[in-house]
Design a protein around this nucleic acid. Structure first.
Lengths: 217, 217
DNA sequence: AAAATAACAGAACAGATGTTCTTGTGGGGT
DNA sequence: ACCCCACAAGAACATCTGTTCTGTTATTTT
């Protein structure tokens, strides 16, 4: 009937679910006969038949002639953590360390922070900075906080960005607005505070802020 | 020679390493004969012999009569994430929802946040609250932030706690100090701000703050 | 050196397991 | 009705695979 590479039949969905549950419970994949029992099916050939389809549809990967040779592509991603390099500190008066490709390698850099994938949300070029000093209190960021940044040079209006103010020699995190006047307005996270106005050639966007993590105790 | 439940012989260490590498590469455990080939051994019985020892020493777990039924205790822990229930919102003027055992079950509660194990650091009774409104800006916490708390009734001096001020009907996060005078001083995270003084019977500690997470973009 | 124990080798067995073959069923389309 | 197709049942087969048995070699203990 359907071979729309995406849709899974009822039975196939149940099989995939069972494989996942079995895996989570036992830490190894089920055999064909485990699936027969677990899904209340009648024959190994039914499983094999559906596994072949599931493989075609990309829902699973199989190693032929290998017992329990079933891989769920979703499960490797279940290691839902990523190591983000903490490439330096950020403080007013200190340049923001630019993430170059040498420092990029996670293994070579001792300082990393582990975060869940849902914080990264698939973004590339994410790095972390440790905040030093209390100079960013108006941005609701404290000494010791970890800031996660995505390395970009341009941001949209309203996004929070890590910017370097050249003449002031100051790094800070602010909401970025390009005003109709051509000036750039940098708005603190604390809306009660007053914004900073700067000319575009004095502002260097270093990255977009995607998260702030503060650990205590 | 040695049966010191901890030490592994050279060969046994190689076997464990191979199992781990094989797992990371294939996403399923090796068979006995895979180990024979992978470790350059001569017989399946040698592997079985050593696997039995490894099991006794607790380095692996085996499921008998099951092909590839080898578990590495270290690998399940590699799922370094935990789901923390977000059991409610916190805002000044709203009581802090107390984590009761009904709401405790992660599965029953739709709202959870995934965090890495190093944030929890083995603590029990951790839950999360979503901050509503801007009433906690002096604690460097913004609307939408997620606060991770450990459910405790007493905290040490200097710890940041979630407290309920009974007469003010206000929930907030402050550094907690029991003054020599017997009064309780609640110090905002922003040290430029003024502390609040309260009498002990007006203060109800709801939990210890262990982390703040702010996501943006 | 002799005995005891740990570790290994090789083969063999029984059950587990992926795969295939044949047959059956049920529904759509013509 | 017919044919074609997706799908399933059941059996059968060939490996794969954990386990065991017997014997051998090394290492330690007495």
């Amino acid at each position: 009937m359907q071979l729309k590479t995406k849709e899974l039949s009822n039975k196939q969905q149940r099989i995939v679910e069972f494989i996942r549950d079995f895996w989570l419970e036992n830490n190894f994949p089920p055999s064909v006969r485990d699936i027969v029992a677990g899904c209340g099916l009648s024959s190994t050939s039914v499983v094999d038949y559906n596994l072949k389809i599931l493989e075609k549809k990309g829902a699973i990967r199989r190693h032929r002639e290998v017992s329990r040779g079933i891989e769920l592509p979703s499960l490797p991603d279940l290691s839902n953590c990523l190591n983000i390099p903490v490439i330096g500190q950020i403080a007013a008066g200190k340049p923001i360390p630019v993430p170059d490709n040498d420092t990029w390698d996670v293994t070579s850099n001792a300082d990393t922070i582990e975060v869940t994938r849902d914080i990264i949300r698939g973004r590339e070029g994410v790095y972390a900075l440790k905040v030093k000093g209390n100079s960013m209190i108006e941005d609701l960021i404290n000494d010791g906080d970890i800031v996660l940044l995505q390395s970009v040079s341009f941001v949209e209006n309203g996004e929070t960005a890590a910017v370097w103010l050249k003449s002031e020699k100051e790094a800070t995190l602010k909401k970025f607005f390009l005003e109709p006047s051509g000036k750039i307005r940098l708005q603190p996270a604390n809306s009660r505070m007053q914004p900073i106005y700067a000319s575009p050639d004095n502002v260097e966007v270093q990255g977009r802020v995607i998260a702030v993590i503060r650990r205590m105790g």
